[in-house]
Amino acid sequence: MNSKTQNKIAIGALYGIAGFVVLILLALLGYILVSGMPQLSWHFLTAPAKAFLKGGGVGVQLFNSFYLLFLAMLISFPIALGAAIYLYEYAKDNWLTTTIRTAIEILSSLPSVVVGLFGFLFFVVKLRLGFSILSGAFALTFFNLPLLTRSIEDSLRTISETQREGGLALGLSRWETVTKVILPAAVPSILTGVILSAGRVFGEAAALIYTAGQSAPALNFMDWNPFNISSPLNPMRPAETLAVHIWKINSEGIMPDAKAISSGSSAVLVLAILIFNFAARYLGKRLYKRLTSA
């Protein structure tokens, strides 16, 4: 067999494998969207869920998902940013940073159900936060922190070393160089990382089942006082998210239209994550243009 034929076979095989992967993905997405899209309506997206009757929506779950995502990001982003800056810009390579990096790696490969059960024992039981948005947000922080730290560190790594030298050579301190030269240049890629990790957090269920709980008490969307129990903003209330809702309907749903609701919820979830991904790309590019060609 000459090398030309070999090459053709290799290319053919690679195309085949790539095509197979794309096919699986399209089939999965197609199935979810085709069976879920017909369920979607304004009513479905805004109405509260019903436990026994037909016609429930996912309004509360949808809100819970976003609120939880917001809180989890609010907690994890500053920590991840600080950790990444320390690890990449300041820390020298020694046993301490090696230990931290190993810890981050192990943490990022923890099964999310383990994170959830840890969150249950520690936040829900030990710290007496109960099944609440706050417990869920803390659990998601544990889940999200390693991935986000890694992605921010990677963003910093893409900024050339010559930029740091340039800053230092002007007499800027290392901190000034990081905050005024490196971070602005890295913002688009950091933002992309944040949005992509938001997609992962948004779809997370296992870590939330035992922390944010599986019930979604009706909310009064006119009441924005975070201390009232029926206020959407109250972080101490139990909050079933969309992903948890899907899991729950499929395992113990007794409403007559359980299958339809599950399909609709899945479609909403997949659409939201698709939007996150496209938004990440679009915003990253836009921001990069804005920041570099002011």
């Binding site: 050339s160 010559t162 930029q163 030298e165 340039g166 800053g167 230092l168 050579a169 002007l170 007499g171 030269v181 602005p184 240049a185 920041l291 570099t292 060609s293 002011a294």
Partner: peptide
């Protein structure tokens, strides 16, 4: 000290600014 003794490098390294 580096403000008194400035430096220009091998590869041009303008910042990603105007």
């Amino acid at each position: 000290m580096r403000r008194r003794v400035g430096m220009v490098f091998q590869r041009p390294n303008p910042f990603a600014k105007s």
